[in-house]
């Protein structure tokens, strides 16, 4: 299970290396590129990226493990990240979590058996004015009600 960028991503990576004043600064962009491609950052991916970035796998893992968006294990096709910090919590984030949890029969941190949904509670998504909020992959869904949650998930199902 070795890792390589697709030709398009490889081009992007090379472009980034040219634009940044040093190679190690390309770490986060490269990790994003790789995770978008692979869905997660596995051991081989990290080893390969470390080589590309001229660093040690351990040093790269030090970085990877610090950030909540990076994952070293595969997740569902749709990552449901429900904000649980104050504004969302006041606006009923817990009910949203419970609702999704029941709907898909998964606990927080789990993935549905069909590999479709992973449910996570996350900290402040920076969208407190439109609480409660769930981020599904790249998109924010705001001012949630339980009905709205159902409609969104129905579309993805």
């Amino acid at each position: 299970m070795s890792f390589a960028f697709t030709p398009e991503r490889k081009r992007l990576f090379k472009e980034l290396v040219k634009r940044y004043p040093d190679k190690r600064s390309v770490t986060l962009p490269a990790l994003h590129l790789a995770q978008e491609q692979e869905g997660y950052l596995g051991r081989e991916t990290i080893e390969a990226l470390a080589r590309m970035l001229g660093s040690a796998p351990s040093t790269l893992m030090d970085t990877v493990s610090f950030y909540t968006m990076f994952t070293t294990r595969p997740r569902g096709k749709y990552l449901l990240q429900v904000c649980q910090t104050l504004a969302c919590s006041l606006a009923g984030a817990d009910q949203v979590v419970d609702h999704i949890s029941k709907r898909h029969q998964i606990k927080v941190g789990e993935t549905t058996p069909d590999g479709k949904f992973t449910l996570l509670k996350v900290e402040c998504l920076g969208s407190c004015g439109t609480a409660p909020v769930v981020q599904i992959n790249d998109d924010y869904y705001e001012r949630l009600t339980l009905d709205k949650v159902d409609r969104i998930l129905d579309k993805l199902a």
Partner: peptide, 9 residues
């Protein structure tokens, strides 16, 4: 040799 690192946060 960079073997050791800090993991997590």
């Amino acid at each position: 040799t960079h073997e050791l690192f800090v993991e997590n946060r």
